[in-house]
Each structure stands twice: as C-alpha cells, then as structure tokens.
C-alpha cells in the first residue's frame, strides 16, 4: 500500500495576460482515490493539473498537498524557495501527453536518473529500483532501449515507471493516452488501473471516458476555466444535470459512434 496524499484546491485563479484560464477553481482530491478531469479543449484541465506541482504558477487562491501550501511561502505571499519546491515535487509524479522521456538515455537510465540525481541513491541501487519499476510496467526486457526504439505505448509506460520509481504519494497524468495510436491506449490504461488499485492518489486529465467511468472515483468537469461539477462518475457521465456537460457528452458520443 502506498502512502497517499490528498490535495485541496481553493479559489484558484490563473491568468495568461488578459486571458482568465482558471476561474476560482475549488476542488478536493481525496487520498488514495482517482480523480479524472474532463471537459473540452482549452477548458483549463491541464492548466489546473500543472498548477498542482507548480509547473504552472497560479496567481491567486491556494493549493495544498497534505495541508502544505505549494508554490508560495504563505497564501498570497512570496514564491516558494527552489529547494523547498523541489522537495515537494519529489513526492509528486507526473506523466505527460508527449511522454517527455530523455532521448539520450536508455529506458533504464531514464528511470534511474531521478533516483541518482534527486534521491541521491548509488548507481547500482538506483538501477535495481529502476529495473523493478520497469518490471512493474511490463518493460523489464526493454530497459536497454533508447526511447526512439520504443513504441508510443512503451514510451509512456517508461514515463510512468520513471515517476513511480521516485515513490510518489500523488500522481498527475496530463492526457497520458492522447498522443497514442488507438491500439496502444489499452496497455497504458492497464498500468494506470494497476496503480489505482494499489491505492495511489491520482489526478488524470483525460478524454478516455471509459477510463473515467470505470476507474475514477470522482470526475470533475471543466469548461472555460470553471469547474462546473465534481461528482461520482455515473452522476457526471450518465445523468448530468448541467446542460454544459450534456452538450459535451453529446458531442463526444456523436464523434465516437459509427
């Protein structure tokens, strides 16, 4: 059982110049639960996710991970010192749409890098843990391969291994299957399901409604920077009350039917 974090998001605002990307968003991510963020493109899902580990700086409000404010020394105060921010990020795993593996390193080196450079483990200790993480995502036999010699699905699984090797208490997924060929989506979702079953706290931005329906404990719907609703998957996906959600799902079903 992994140690699982909770996240509290309170009244978060984010601006890109005049563009209001997040509008007073508040949400709780419960420990050990999977929360899916859905909604149309440009609705602010990824921005919100990236605010959680402060890759994106929010302008107002508070984001707390296990009661500890991220990004700022105090609410509305000075920005957090680099060392402190890095320490918080160590326990937050992140998986990107474009995998973002380091192409000059093998799969094993990609996973071991953080263990050596951030956690300070010896090379051999790091490699044995990295091997373990790669085994977990089913890629122990590919650990000597460079990213370009792997399929998209394999690359994304290495990226997941890279994150979980750091033993995070919270995992953020930013559209992890959107860049994949349809036949490769399943292998990545399976790894994510296994992770969820271990009790990892997960926040997942996704267009995979099936994953949201079957794996998520809670689904949040965003539109135009607003958090419209957050509820159990069935309430959002099968009997939504808000017309904006109804409209989004109608478009989704139309596009996916043939």
């Amino acid at each position: 059982m992994v140690q699982a974090s909770s996240v509290q998001i309170r009244q978060v605002d984010k601006f890109y110049g005049p563009f209001h990307a997040l509008k007073k968003v508040s949400m709780d991510v419960l420990p050990g639960k999977v929360t899916c963020l859905i909604g149309p493109s440009g609705s602010g899902k990824s921005t919100l996710l990236r605010c959680i580990n402060f890759l994106e700086e929010y302008d107002a409000g508070e984001i707390r991970i296990d009661d500890q404010l991220i990004g700022y020394e105090s609410p509305g105060g000075r920005k957090m010192r680099g060392a402190k921010l890095r320490e918080m990020r160590r326990s937050i795993g992140m998986v990107f749409q474009q995998f973002n593996l380091w192409p000059h390193m093998t799969a094993l080196q990609n996973v071991a890098e953080g263990l050596v450079r951030v956690r300070g483990l010896s090379k051999s200790e790091a490699e044995s843990r990295a091997t373990e993480a790669l085994r977990k995502v089913g890629l122990a036999d590919k650990m000597g391969n460079h990213p370009l010699r792997l399929s998209g699905g394999q690359q994304q699984r290495v990226a997941i291994a890279r994150a979980i090797a750091m033993e995070p208490k919270l995992m953020l997924f930013d559209e992890p299957t959107s860049a994949l060929d349809p036949e490769l989506v399943g292998e990545v979702l399976n790894v994510m399901k296994a992770l969820a079953a271990e009790g990892m706290t997960m926040v997942v931005v996704t267009h995979e409604m099936g994953f949201a329906a079957h794996v998520a404990d809670r689904v949040a719907f965003m539109e135009k920077g607003e958090l419209v609703a957050v509820d159990e998957p069935s309430r959002i996906l099968h009997s939504p009350e808000d017309p904006r959600i109804q409209g989004f799902l109608r478009t989704y079903h139309e596009r996916n039917s043939f």
């Binding site: 680099g82 320490e87 380091w102 890098e113 750091m166």
Partner: peptide
C-alpha cells in the same frame, strides 16, 4: 523540447543538474 526539461523539474531535479544532464547533452 520544453517538456523534457519540465519532466526533470517535475521529479524535483535542480536547475544546475538539469543543465548538466539534460540541456547540455541534448
């Protein structure tokens, strides 16, 4: 790609290490 640098930041790597291990080689 910025994403490869963000991936390093996301695991808590320091900027000097990012320069040495990611930015310079690539």
């Amino acid at each position: 790609p910025l994403g490869q640098i963000e991936a390093a930041r996301a695991i808590g790597m320091s900027e000097p290490t990012i320069i040495r291990r990611i930015l310079l080689p690539l």
